[in-house]
């Protein structure tokens, strides 16, 4: 044994392969020339040969120790606490979607959702309301509906005005109908009616709506001309008498003519309506 010999620790590390390449080369060269070190290496090999088979069973069994388990659990817990909620959800979804049954159910749900969205998009057609404002009158309540495009005679004024009609449009493959609404102030309305006049006006309004839908079908062109002429005559009489009664409320003659003109208008409207009924009964 000389000063260059290695201790048993180095010899054992050499056997276990724990040395670097240079150290291993140096030990190998030395052992080849030194009998003492060679003997030590031989003894160490014999001991390993005896010990390793005895411990082989223990070495091959990969049972984690309790400490290892604790480390693993601690690590998982730390990761879990550090994850965001989206990451957790994504992780859950990823695991769940790996199951084919769950994936199929998800597909059906998505299809149903898309269909529902499409159906909901087809919203019911709501009429677009075109408001018509009487000049110089404050608008507050809806009084009556007049057909679009027609001339409406305000019972409190001799001036007829035209109801503007909102244009029918195609938008997103939906047709939007329009309703023209004649608006007036309710308080003004009630205040301006004479006794008994309101019922005439309401009746005329109701009949007008019916007749406006019928007259184009019911009346021939010549009858239509006569009807419009007669209606103009009656409306003119109503307007004149209303002005007169407003100017002189004690003018009973004007009142009588006014009421008889209202009645004439009702009769005129009724004649169209009744003709339509007769024609329908003959179909």
């Amino acid at each position: 044994m000389n000063a260059n010999c290695f201790d048993i620790g180095m010899i054992q590390a050499f056997l276990d392969g724990e040395l670097t390449h240079d150290e291993s080369t140096r030990i190998s060269s030395h052992v080849a020339a030194c009998d003492t070190c060679a003997l030590m290496l031989a003894e160490a090999e014999e001991e390993s040969a005896l010990v390793f088979p005895a411990l082989e069973r223990e070495f091959n069994t990969l049972v984690p120790t309790q400490r290892l388990w604790n480390k693993i659990n601690d690590s998982i817990e730390t990761d879990r606490n550090n994850q965001s909620i989206w990451s957790k959800a994504w992780a859950f979804l990823a695991v769940a979607l790996a199951n084919p049954t769950f994936a199929a159910a998800a597909s059906v749900l998505i299809v149903i959702g898309i269909s529902a969205a499409v159906l909901l998009n087809r919203a019911p057609e709501q009429p677009t309301v075109a408001e018509v404002v009487i000049p110089k009158t404050k608008v507050s309540t809806t009084a009556q509906i007049a057909p679009a495009g027609d001339v409406v005679v305000d019972p409190r004024s001799s001036t007829p005005y035209t109801v503007e009609r909102a244009s029918t449009r195609y938008d997103d493959r939906r047709i939007t109908t329009s309703t023209a609404v004649y608006k007036t102030s309710a308080s003004t309305n009630n205040a301006s009616y004479m006794p008994g006049e309101e019922s005439y006006v309401k009746t005329i309004s109701s009949l007008s709506k019916t007749v406006e839908t019928q007259k184009s079908e019911t009346l021939r062109p010549s009858e239509r001309i006569a009807y419009e002429r007669d209606m103009a005559v009656v409306d003119d009489a109503i307007a004149k008498m209303r002005r007169e009664v407003k100017k002189n409320p004690k003018n009973e003659s004007a009142k009588q003519v006014l009421y008889s003109s209202y009645q004439n208008k009702i009769d005129l409207l009724n004649s169209v309506s009744q003709k339509g009924e007769l024609m329908a009964s003959l179909r």
Partner: peptide
């Protein structure tokens, strides 16, 4: 793929233009 036929069916067909002025039955 499953939604395509449903979308086609759900699509409203183009309505005919109104034959008359509003207010006429």
């Amino acid at each position: 793929f499953a939604a395509i036929p449903m979308l086609v069916q759900a699509q409203p067909s183009m309505p005919d233009p109104p034959s008359r002025v509003y207010g006429v039955s």
